[in-house]
Amino acid sequence: MAFIKQTAPQVVNEDERTASRDFDGLCAELNNENQTARRWAARDLVQFSQASAPLVARLKIEAHPNVRTAILDTLAQIGDEQAITGIVECLRSDEASLRNEAIEVLKNIPEQVAPIIDSLLNDSDSDVRIFAVNILESLHHEDVEKWLIQVIEQDEHVNVCATAVDLLSEVGTELSLNALEHLKIRFADEPYICFSVELALKRIGQGDR
């Protein structure tokens, strides 16, 4: 039989963990040319509360998606103001994959994100406002519906409203009914809005019976 059992423990042989694991050593490793080394450094920096600045700096120039994911995860875990600002900046990136990674990460830290939702929902960039609504989807926060109603009552951009209606059809209550009816009038010539509002009204209405 050719089955064997491990005779010696696996050596963590890769060069990526040979560098010093103190704060300065890890910051230096963030610029290592080996992407695995950078990813490990980004992960190990989670134990240092002062790591947000070097991580955000690296995030701005990092090209490898796996390293970026690790940096975003670590920033989310540190969760201080600088870290959150760094993640939010990614929403403005030209790269779709980075924007979407940032949204995913922000969805998982409701306490840190809730205080900035208002400002994101009022951002001048309509795409950022859409992403803010995307973040609301997974936010376990009592104001989610209130924010969504505010969006469909006030936002002028059809796609921001459309994104909010999609979510309201899942989380909306009778509190949303008026705003939804108004939205349908406001965008009466948009077939998609009419479709999605009808769907949301139906889903919410049924729940009341």
């Binding site: 039989m1 050719a2 089955f3 064997i4 059992k5 491990q6």
Partner: peptide
């Protein structure tokens, strides 16, 4: 997995396999 390798993998004699 172990049974499948022994019964159906023709290279089982040529490689060492560790199942953890």
């Amino acid at each position: 997995i172990a049974i499948y390798l022994l019964e159906y993998w023709r290279d089982i004699e040529n490689y060492d396999v560790e199942i953890i």
